[in-house]
Design a protein around this nucleic acid. Structure first.
Lengths: 363, 363
DNA sequence: TTGAAAGCGGTACCAC
DNA sequence: GTGGTACCGCTTTCAA
């Protein structure tokens, strides 16, 4: 193909040396002009900038980070990029990152521990400022050990582990947790149903092993207890946080334990499925059966009737998570960062819409 | 704090030199063992790997890419990470990337040209294999020039511009386009309504300047023409691709041009808003008014009634986009890659559900 | 097979 | 203020 002078490299990008040469100055000067953090004569600056524009030069980020500087990067690790809640956290992280000139890497684990490990290592290679793990965790045996290992590994590499939307790790682990009052939200939501007069509530908390689901179930149970009402485990159905589960769980419940007057869904999406199943069975919402959700994603206010649900500040959690790592970074050496990391908890609250009504009198 | 030996660096991560030293071999050998693409004695490998595990060592990605190798990275640039359609494309890209061991960077532009430019340059600095721009574009005056500049700029840096979900650039621009048959889908969707007997169709194509909206409107118009039916511009309402627009547009139309019997929404989300507005006005879907959408995101099948819509293979588009850049990379030097880049078009098709019925006889 | 050393593209310290 | 230059951590010839 076309081959120009060998100096101004034809393949690949222009280097700082190309710029220096063409501007008739030293590479050090070019570096200074571009960094802008050093006094430089107006004349030099002009000359350099002209060549930079002519060559459409940009610094090589890899070289820059090797040499010292470099753009901080955060890695966002997520099970499934498609979930609305996750998307909002990611938005918060990415937005806050961009605001600071940081970059965001994204990886999806698909609930596969192997992939998760591979990604954490990949991110470690990249020298990311932090690895942010989003979403509830499956609390299997090795989970704590696994995460502790991640945390120490990242910490040793000058990076940091941030857990968002799941409980903090036990013991002295160098990790930061950004969580929300999951159990409290569920407690409030269940209380809302109880105070409307509901006693037989179908509960769809999510997977039994998922920390998120466990907290929501606990919250519901506590509410029943506080109201002095018996909590029937037979009305609890576990399953995935998706539309299909909501649908199928309600369908099954209508056959097996049809005396419930309300559904406490683990997420808004599950609530949507539940609502559809009730409709298909000829039941009206909320006249015949009330429904509440959890998350307060846009879908909640788009359903008919609009869904009463628990608002979780997902986007803010993302922002808070990023701010936490940024702060800790500025804190620098000798900062008073506790070895066991911080634990930030954001509040949740019930958003009352139109999907709840006192139970219909027994027919 | 604790300060061990200066050799095995206490702060920051272990380097290849640390590993070499501790294993009593040369750095070259360590490099070879880790790359695995070079014959190495079993004994050496064992010694090195042990130290690697002991030190929990991972290669510095920046140094590696500077020196030659390195993990290819793709950048996904998106307006709003929150949109379901975008999320699916991103999933396709990220999935295909991870499959090849590639990394995915993500940036959001928020429809701000400045941010977009800044991001493209940032990505150029990172030396990404490709920059993938997602979603329809606003076809303002400078758009073509702007994109051409991006394309050449990236191309000169050994990177590549990929446009996904928007029309290809004009002229000899080094960019790849992955598009879908947008107009064809709209044509088919409108035809579906027409053949059901609808004549007065409220059309909500999206923003007038958005390429996506333009194509969908053209498709609808062509369908009317093919049916020999007059197309009333007075029944077209432009606006954002969101729930609120769907709601407000229908609300307004019910006041001003209430004789429509069907709504052709620009996206499923707009359709959801439209559906809600009709309900609020006491109209039934599809008995009184039919509705169709576009995109076929999960929401479409979760609405009541389930939405008849146009399926767009978003996730596949993402995969295809990544494959395109991977192929072009392997094609290597002298490959037969045309200067004007490729243009890949995926098909769309109507998914018939329950939101369309022949128009009710005039009351 | 293994080791020594020359870069990769910048940054920043040290002279002038 | 500006130029020379020693690294940053790794890959990859080139010799041994």
């Amino acid at each position: 193909m076309s081959q120009r002078k060998a100096t101004t490299s034809d393949a690949g990008r222009a280097t700082i040396r190309d710029v220096a040469e063409r501007a008739g100055v030293s590479v050090a000067s070019v570096s200074r002009v571009l960094s802008g953090n050093y006094p430089v004569s107006e004349e030099l600056r002009r000359r350099v900038m002209k060549v930079v524009r002519d060559l459409d030069y940009v610094t090589n980020a890899h070289a820059r980070s090797l040499a010292g500087g470099g753009t901080p990067t955060v890695a966002i690790l997520i099970n499934n990029i498609t979930g609305a809640a996750f998307a909002h956290v990611a938005k918060g992280v990415e937005g806050a990152a961009t605001l600071r000139g940081w970059l965001s890497l994204v990886g999806t684990t698909g609930d596969d521990p192997e992939r998760e490990l591979a990604l954490v290592n990949l991110m470690r290679q990249q020298g990311v400022a932090a690895v942010i793990l989003l979403g509830g965790a499956y609390d299997y045996d090795e989970y704590q050990l696994r995460m502790a290992r991640f945390a120490r590994s990242l910490d040793a590499a000058g990076s940091h582990l941030v857990l968002v939307g799941r409980p903090p790790l036990e013991g002295d682990v160098p990790a930061t947790t950004v969580d929300y009052d999951n159990e409290g939200g569920a407690y409030a939501m269940a209380s809302h149903l109880l105070s409307a007069g509901h006693r037989r509530v179908l509960v769809l908390p999510g997977h039994a092993e998922l920390t998120t689901a466990q907290a929501r179930l606990r919250g519901a149970q506590r509410a029943f207890q506080a109201y002095g009402m018996p909590f029937d485990p037979g009305l609890v159905r576990h399953g995935r946080y998706d539309y299909e589960h909501g649908y199928e769980a309600v369908e099954a419940a209508l056959h097996e334990t049809p005396d419930f007057t309300a559904v406490l869904a683990g997420t808004d999406v599950v609530a949507a499925g539940a609502m559809q199943a009730l409709r298909s069975a000829g039941l009206r919402v909320p006249e015949d059966v009330s429904i509440v959700g959890y998350d307060d994603i846009p879908l909640a206010s788009q359903l008919t009737p609009q869904l009463t649900t628990v608002h979780v500040p997902y986007e803010e959690m993302g922002r808070v998570a990023l701010r936490a790592v940024a702060d800790r970074r500025e804190g620098g050496s000798g900062g008073r960062k506790s070895a066991d990391g911080d634990h930030l908890v954001l509040g949740t609250h019930v958003v009352v819409r139109n999907s709840v009504q006192p139970p219909a009198p027994r027919g």
